[in-house]
Design a binder for these strands. Structure first.
Length: 861
RNA sequence: GGGCGAGUGGCGGAAUGGUAUACGCGAUAGUCUCAAAAACUAUUGGUCACUGAGACCUUGAGGGUUCGAGUCCCUCUUCGCCCACCA
C-alpha cells in the first residue's frame, strides 16, 4: 500500500499523467465491453463471418488452472486480431458439464451432481470473466441444460432412424471402478482413461453408433483438412485401414469353413496352423467331442482375464487344440485349428493363419506347441537354414522360396500375384479392415442425457419396431429376416423430448451392468408408443462425447428452442435462425492434441451423418484445427496428485490479466507450451509498465523520420504475419524491439502511438483499451481497424554486407543503398578491408559470390 | 515393436540455405538513495590472448550435398508424445 502510494507520488512529481493500475483498468473495461456488446456479432447479417472456437472445458470444482489461461488467451488473441481485421468474429464459450468426470467429483464430495454443477458453473464463469476474453457471452451453453440435451437426444434418434444406432450384446470394456462400459477410445493401455483401473471384458447389451460405416470417408477426407499434422496422423492411425485378403479354408470333416484375414498371403505356402479367438462364434462347432471340455475351460478362463492380462508381460502364448484341421489349398497341408486369446475377436475375422517362419507371434506360438515351422522367404542375410530361433524370423523383406510359382519373387510382388491367384480360384477375396470399432454409446451412469428410447416386449416378440411403422418404412427399409436387424425389434424413439434426467437421491453407479435409473420405476415405466402396452424406457445415459460431438452447432442457436442449430431444413419454423449457418463450418478450431482421436473423430462423424440427412451442407466441421501446447510445471504435467497445479487467480491479482496472458504466450511457441516459472512474470509485467509509461508521458506530437517510418512498417508487417500463424512469442518480441527503438526517440508521433497500441491490443486488451481512451480516441480499440503496412516504406539507408572468405565471416561492410548494388565496387571495397586482405594474401580467387544486399564470399585457394 | 516430433548460451527461446545465439529471464557492475526496493545505464556463448588488435571453437554425435548448413540428405544417439499380441 505504502509503496504504491509512494510510487504514484513520484510519478506525479515526474509529471506522469496516471499510474498503471491493471486491476482497476481491467474491471472498468470488462464491464464496458459487456455493456456495449462489442463481442456479440450479428449472427444473422454477418458480412464476414469468422467462427473462432475453442474446445469447451469440463468444469472442476477447483476452477481454471494456469493452463486454461494459456489456451483461452491464445485463442482470444486470434479472435481479437481477426475482429480488428474486419471480420464478424463469433467466439462462444460453454461448459461440457455432463459426464463421469463431474459425476465422480460429485460422488467424492458427497454433493448431488445437480448442486455440484450449479456451484462449479458459477465459479467457472466468474473466473473466466476476470480474464477479459472476448466471448459472446449471450450464446453460452451447458450440456446438462435440458434445453441443450433435448437436442442431444434428438440427434440420437436421428441416428437411430437412419439405421446408424443399434443395440447389441457383445464383449465390451467395463471399468470396475467407474462401474460402466467404455468406448474403445477411452481405454488407454488396457486401463480406464479417467481412473486408470484395469478394464474388464463383459458381455453386455449396449447401444452402438455405426461409425465404421463412415471409416472410409473419415479417412479419405483427412488429406484435405487444414489441421495440425500430428492430429491428422493420429486419426489415420486410429482408423487403421489395412488392406489384405480374407482366405476361407475348409474344415476337414465338419462341413464348414473358417475365414482368416491376412496382409501377407505371399507366405501362405508356409502356413502351418490356424488360430481363432475364444469369442469366435465358430469355436464350439469345429471342436471335436473329445476336445470340448478343454476348449470350454480355456474359453471360460480367458473370458475372466482383462485385455491387459491377456497381453501382459512376456507375452507368453496360451492356447488349446480344437481337434479339427483346415486344409491349405496351396499345399494340401492339414493345418491344426487352435483357440488362442492372442487372437482378437474384433480385428479382421477373429481368426488368423499362422506362418511361424515369418511372423514373430506365430513363431512363439508354434514353438510353444510344437507346430511345424517352414521357411518360405530368404532375407538379405542369405540365411536358408531351417528356422529354429526367433532372430531368424524374417518379416520385413526378402525373396520367396519353397513356394511353387512364387519362387524367386520379391515378397511384395508375390503378395499381389498370390492375391490375384486366390481370387481367381475363389479361395479368398481382397478386403480392407479397420482398427476403428463402432462407437459404444451407452453408459451405466447417472450424470448424462437418458438415451431417449423405449422398449416394448410385446412388439419385440412380434418382430415389430419403429422401422415397421409407416413412418419408419419411409426412413429406412429393414429386412426383418436378417439376423443383423433383429436387435432393433421392440425399440421406439421416445415420442417427447427431452426425456428429462430426474433428480434422484441414489445416483451411485450400481456395477451390475444396469444404470442407477433402473432402480426408479417412475422413470422407466411407460406405455409403448405403438401398441400402448406397458413398456420400459432405456435407463442408460449416453456417452459424454456425444454431448460434445455437436455443441459447435448449438452455439449458433442457444436462443431458440425450435431447432437444434441453424439449417435450411429448419428455416420454415424458425426465422430468427435464418442465415446464421453462414458461420459454419467452424473457421478456426483450437484445442488440445489429446482430443485428436476421441472428440474430433466423433464430431466429424456426427457432422457427416447430419450432412447425409440433409441438415448441413458441409461434411467436415472444422476447416482449420490448431493443436496448442501444454503449460507444464518443473517438466511435469500439472495435476492435483502431484500438487503442482498453479492457480491463476493469485497471479491475475498481482500482475493483472494482461501480464499473465502475455507472459504465458511469450514462454514459447503456442503449439508447444512451456514450463511455468514465476521469474519471467516480473519481466513481462515490467515490459507492460514501460510501454504504459512511454505513451502516457508522451505528447505524441512528433514527426517521423524515414527510419522511424521504416521501423513501424516492418513491425506491423511482422506482427501481422506472426499473429496469422499464431506465433505469439515472436510477435511480442517484435513489439519489444520496436519499443526499444521508440524509447530512444526524442518525440513520438500520434501514428506511432496508435499503431503500437493497436498491435498490442490482442495480447493486452485492457491496458491498450485504457491507452486508446487516454489518447482521446473513440471506444473501442478492439473494434478499430488493424494497421496496414507498406513494404515500400521499409527501407534502410545503409546496408550491412557480410564479407566471407571461404565461407568464414571476415568483415562487415556498411554501404549506402546505391553502392551496395554495384557488384564491382563492393568487391573492390571488400578486398581492401585489412581483415579480408589478410586471408586473401597469397591465394587466388577462384570464385566470387555476391548475394545482393546480404553477403559476399571469396572462394580462394 | 510401430508412428510422429524435438535436441541451439546459466535458463525460456529466435533465425525465407546467406553476419547463429534476436527478444526476454537470470547474472555482474554502475547511477539514484542514509540504506534498500523500484527504476535507469552498461556488460554478458566458450577457449586462448588480454597491452592492443585479434585468433580459434560452438546449434546432441558422425558423415554427405553446397561457394556457404542450426536449416537439405544419410547413419547413430537422447528425450517427449501418440498407438500397440492389429494377423
Amino acid at each position: 500500500m505504502e509503496k504504491t502510494e509512494a510510487n504514484s507520488l513520484k510519478n506525479k512529481a515526474r509529471g506522469g499523467k496516471s499510474t498503471y493500475d491493471p486491476f482497476s483498468i481491467s474491471l472498468k473495461w470488462q464491464s464496458k465491453w459487456e455493456e456495449e456488446g462489442i463481442y456479440q456479432p450479428d449472427l444473422q447479417n454477418a458480412k464476414r463471418p469468422f467462427y473462432n472456437l475453442m474446445m469447451f472445458p469440463y468444469p472442476s470444482a477447483e476452477g481454471l488452472h494456469i493452463g486454461s489461461i494459456f489456451t483461452f488467451g491464445g485463442v482470444d488473441v486470434y479472435a481479437r486480431f481477426k475482429r480488428m481485421q474486419g471480420y464478424d468474429v463469433f467466439e462462444p464459450i460453454g461448459l461440457d458439464g455432463f459426464g463421469i468426470h463431474s459425476e465422480n467429483h460429485a460422488l467424492k464430495t458427497g454433493t448431488h451432481p445437480f448442486e455440484h454443477a450449479k456451484t462449479t458453473e458459477e465459479n467457472f464463469y466468474r473466473q473466466l470473466h476476470s480474464t477479459g476474453i472476448s466471448f459472446a457471452w449471450k450464446n453460452k451453453l451447458e450440456t446438462y441444460d435440458p434445453g441443450y440435451y433435448r437436442w442431444t437426444q434428438w440427434l440420437f434418434i436421428e441416428l437411430f432412424k437412419a439405421g446408424l444406432a443399434y443395440k447389441k450384446k457383445s464383449p465390451v470394456n467395463f471399468c470396475p471402478s467407474c462401474k460402466t462400459v467404455l468406448a474403445d477410445e477411452q481405454v488407454i493401455d488396457g486401463k480406464c482413461e479417467r481412473c486408470s483401473s484395469i478394464v474388464e471384458k463383459r458381455d453386455l447389451e449396449q447401444w452402438f453408433f455405426k461409425i465404421t460405416d463412415y471409416a472410409e470417408r473419415l479417412l479419405n477426407n483427412i488429406e484435405g483438412l487444414d489441421w495440425s499434422h500430428k492430429v491428422k496422423v493420429a486419426q489415420k492411425n486410429w482408423i487403421g485401414k489395412k488392406t489384405g485378403i480374407n482366405i476361407s479354408y475348409d474344415v476337414e470333416g465338419i462341413g464348414t469353413e473358417v475365414t482368416v484375414f491376412t496382409t501377407r498371403p505371399d507366405t501362405n505356402f508356409g502356413a502351418t496352423f490356424i488360430a481363432i479367438a475364444p469369442e469366435h462364434p465358430l469355436v464350439m462347432e469345429i471342436t471335436t467331442p473329445e476336445n470340448k471340455k478343454a476348449v470350454k475351460a480355456y474359453i471360460e478362463q480367458s473370458a475372466k482375464k482383462s485385455d491387459i492380462e491377456r497381453t501382459a508381460e512376456g507375452k507368453e502364448k496360451s492356447g488349446v487344440f480344437t481337434g479339427s484341421y483346415a486344409i491349405n489349398q496351396l499345399t494340401g497341408y492339414k493345418m491344426p485349428i487352435w483357440v488362442s486369446d492372442f487372437v482378437l475377436v474384433g480385428f479382421g475375422t477373429g481368426a488368423l493363419v499362422g506362418v511361424p517362419g515369418h511372423d514373430h507371434r506365430d513363431f512363439e506360438f508354434a514353438s510353444k506347441f510344437g507346430l511345424e515351422i517352414k521357411r518360405v522367404v530368404v532375407g538379405s542375410d542369405g540365411d536358408t537354414s531351417p528356422i529354429t530361433k526367433l532372430e531368424q524370423v524374417q518379416e520385413e523383406e526378402g525373396k520367396m522360396v519353397n513356394s511353387d510359382f512364387l519362387n524367386g519373387l520379391d515378397i511384395h510382388d508375390a503378395t499381389e500375384k498370390i492375391m490375384d491367384y486366390m481370387e481367381e480360384k475363389g479361395y479368398g477375396e481382397r478386403v480392407s479392415t479397420y482398427h476403428l470399432r463402432d462407437w459404444l454409446i451407452s453408459r451405466q451412469r447417472y450424470w448424462g442425457p437418458p438415451i431417449p428410447m423405449i422398449f416394448c416386449k410385446e412388439c419385440h416378440d412380434k418382430g415389430e419396431s419403429w422401422f415397421t411403422t409407416d413412418e419408419g418404412r419411409k426412413h429406412h427399409e429393414l429386412d426383418r429376416d436378417d439376423p443383423e436387424n433383429q436387435h432393433t425389434f421392440g425399440w421406439y424413439p421416445a415420442p417427447e423430448l427431452p426425456v428429462e434426467l430426474p433428480y434422484v437421491e441414489n445416483y451411485k453407479p450400481l456395477g451390475t451392468g444396469k444404470a442407477p435409473l433402473a432402480n426408479y420405476p417412475d422413470f422407466y415405466e411407460v406405455k409403448c408408443p405403438r401398441c400402448g402396452l406397458p413398456a420400459t424406457r432405456e435407463t442408460d445415459v449416453s456417452d459424454t462425447f456425444l454431448d460434445s460431438a455437436w455443441y459447435f452447432l448449438r452455439y449458433l442457436a442457444t436462443d431458440s428452442d425450435e431447432a437444434p442449430f441453424p439449417s435450411s431444413k429448419f428455416k420454415v419454423q424458425s426465422s430468427k435462425l435464418n442465415g446464421r449457418e453462414c458461420f459454419l463450418p467452424v473457421t478456426m478450431y483450437i484445442g488440445g492434441a489429446e482430443h485428436s482421436v476421441l472428440h474430433l473423430l466423433y464430431a466429424r462423424f456426427v457432422t457427416m451423418v447430419l450432412k447425409d440427412l440433409g441438415y448441413l451442407d458441409f461434411e467436415e466441421p472444422f476447416s482449420r484445427f490448431y493443436a496448442h501446447g501444454l503449460i507444464i510445471k518443473d517438466g511435469a504435467k500439472m495435476s492435483k496428485s502431484k500438487g503442482n497445479v498453479i492457480n491463476p487467480d493469485v497471479y491475475i491479482k498481482k500482475y493483472g490479466a494482461d501480464a499473465v496472458r502475455c507472459y504465458l504466450l511469450f514462454l514459447g511457441p503456442f503449439n508447444q507450451g512451456g514450463d511455468f516459472r514465476d521469474s519471467g512474470m516480473d519481466g513481462m509485467s515490467r515490459f507492460l509498465k514501460r510501454v504504459w509509461k512511454l505513451f502516457v508521458d508522451s505528447e505524441l506530437d512528433g514527426n517521423m523520420t524515414p527510419g522511424a517510418m521504416s521501423m513501424m512498417n516492418e513491425t506491423v508487417k511482422g506482427v501481422t504475419e506472426d499473429l496469422e500463424e499464431l506465433r505469439y512469442n515472436t510477435a511480442l518480441s517484435k513489439l519489444m524491439i520496436w519499443y526499444n527503438f521508440l524509447v530512444k526517440q526524442e518525440k513520438l508521433s500520434r501514428e506511432e502511438g496508435e499503431t503500437y497500441v493497436k498491435l498490442l491490443a490482442p495480447v493486452a486488451p485492457h491496458m491498450t483499451e485504457e491507452l486508446w481512451s487516454i489518447f482521446g480516441n473513440a471506444f473501442s480499440v478492439h473494434t478499430s481497424a488493424w494497421p496496414t503496412f507498406d513494404t515500400k516504406a521499409i527501407v534502410h539507408e545503409t546496408v550491412k554486407l557480410a564479407v566471407q572468405v571461404n565461407g568464414k565471416l571476415r568483415a562487415v561492410l556498411e554501404l549506402d543503398q546505391v553502392s551496395a548494388k554495384d557488384e564491382k565496387k563492393v568487391r573492390e571495397l571488400a578486398e581492401k578491408e585489412p581483415s579480408v586482405a589478410k586471408f586473401l594474401e597469397g591465394k587466388s580467387v577462384k570464385k566470387f559470390i555476391y548475394v545482393s544486399g546480404k553477403i559476399l564470399n571469396f572462394v580462394a585457394i
